[in-house]
C-alpha cells in the first residue's frame, strides 16, 4: 500500500511483531540458556535471563553420564531406515501417479489422503498386538514399519509435484532413442527430481526422529528407547535435573534446525500445497 505509514501505526506494528517473536521463540531461548546454567544458578528463585557464568556440565552429564547415546543410536537407526524405505516406495508411487495411467489410480490417491487424516493413537492397540504376534515387539524394525506409513503420504505428494514439473517432451526424446520406461525413470528422472528427494529424505528423517507414540508402545528395553521416549522419562523421575533435560532437548532439536535451514522454504510450500491438493 502506498499511503504513508503514520508513526503510531508503525509503533503498534513493531510492538505486535516483538510480542509474536517473543511468544514463539522465548521458550526455545529459555531452554538454551537453562542448558548452559550452573546447578546453583538453576535452583535460584530469581532466574537470570543472561547468565554471567556459563558451563557445559549439563551437556557432559547428558553425553557421558546418561543413556542418551543409546537413545541417539536407536533414533538414528530408526530414522535412517524410515528414510531409505520411504524414498524407494515414494519414488515409485509418485512416478506412477504422475506419469502413468492405470486402473485404480484415483482410489490410490484417495487412500493416501486417508492416511493424512488417520490418527496414530487409534492404531496403538492393534499395532502393539500385531508386532507382539510376529515377534517384532521390542525390536527397532517394528517402529520403522509404522513410521514409513506416517512419512509416505507427504513424500509421495512432494515427489509427484516434482515429476509433474518435468516436461514430457524430455521423456519422449529419450523414448525415441530406445530407452525403456524403467530406464527413463532411473536415468532421466531421478537426477532431475534430486531436490525433491532431498526434501523427502530430510522430512522423513525428522518426522521419524520426532515421533513419540510408536517407540513408546513398541520398545521396552531402556537401551533401545529413542530420544523422545528416553528423555521424556527423565521428567518423571524422582529427582529432576532441568539442566540435563534442557541440554538433551537442545540436542534433540538440532536435526530440526538443519531441516529449517536447508529446506525450510520448500517444506512450507509443500505443506500448504498438500493441504490444498
Amino acid at each position: 500500500m502506498k499511503d504513508a505509514k503514520t508513526i503510531p501505526k508503525r509503533i503498534i506494528f513493531t510492538l505486535l511483531l516483538l510480542v509474536v517473536i517473543g511468544w514463539f521463540f522465548f521458550p526455545v531461548y529459555w531452554a538454551l540458556i537453562t542448558s548452559f546454567k550452573t546447578p546453583l544458578d538453576l535452583m535460584s528463585s530469581r532466574p537470570t535471563f543472561f547468565p554471567k557464568k556459563m558451563t557445559l556440565s549439563s551437556y557432559e552429564d547428558v553425553l557421558l553420564r546418561s543413556k542418551f547415546l543409546y537413545y541417539l543410536r536407536s533414533s538414528i537407526i530408526i530414522a535412517s531406515g524410515v528414510t531409505i524405505i520411504t524414498l524407494i516406495l515414494a519414488t515409485g508411487a509418485a512416478y506412477s501417479l504422475s506419469r502413468l495411467n492405470f486402473k485404480g489410480k484415483r482410489l490410490f490417491s484417495n487412500l493416501i489422503l486417508l492416511v493424512y487424516l488417520f490418527p496414530g493413537i487409534l492404531l496403538a492397540v492393534p499395532i502393539f498386538k500385531m508386532m507382539t504376534k510376529i515377534g517384532l515387539y521390542d525390536m527397532l524394525p517394528s517402529v520403522v514399519l509404522v513410521h514409513v506409513m506416517i512419512t509416505l503420504p507427504f513424500c509421495i505428494w512432494t515427489l509427484r509435484t516434482f515429476f509433474d514439473q518435468i516436461p514430457r517432451s524430455l521423456e519422449d526424446a529419450a523414448r525415441i532413442d530406445g530407452a525403456s520406461k524403467l530406464s527413463v525413470l532411473y536415468k532421466l528422472y531421478l537426477p532431475l527430481i534430486g531436490p525433491g528427494l532431498v526434501t523427502s529424505a530430510i522430512f522423513s528423517f525428522v518426522a521419524s526422529w520426532n515421533e513419540y507414540i510408536f517407540p513408546l508402545i513398541l520398545l521396552s528395553t531402556p537401551e533401545k528407547k529413542t530420544i523422545p521416549v528416553g528423555i521424556a522419562g527423565w521428567a518423571s523421575s524422582y529427582t529432576i535435573d532441568w539442566g540435563q533435560i534442557t541440554a538433551a532437548v537442545i540436542l534433540a532439536i538440532i536435526p530440526v534446525i538443519i531441516l529449517i535451514q536447508l529446506i525450510g522454504r520448500r517444506f512450507v510450500a509443500g505443506l500448504s500445497g498438500a493441504i490444498k491438493g
Binding site: F24, F25, P27, V28, W30, A31, T34, V206, W209, N210, Y212, I227, P228, V229, I231, A232, A235, W242, I245, T246, V249, A252, I253, V256, L259, I260, G264, R265, F267, V268
Partner: peptide
C-alpha cells in the same frame, strides 16, 4: 516466514519438556 515453524516442528517431547520447565 520459515523460522516461525520452529515451535511446530520441534519434537513434541521437546515442547512439553520446555513448557514443564
Amino acid at each position: 516466514r520459515t523460522w516461525i515453524l520452529l515451535s511446530w516442528i520441534i519434537p513434541i517431547v521437546a515442547t512439553t519438556l520446555i513448557w514443564q520447565w
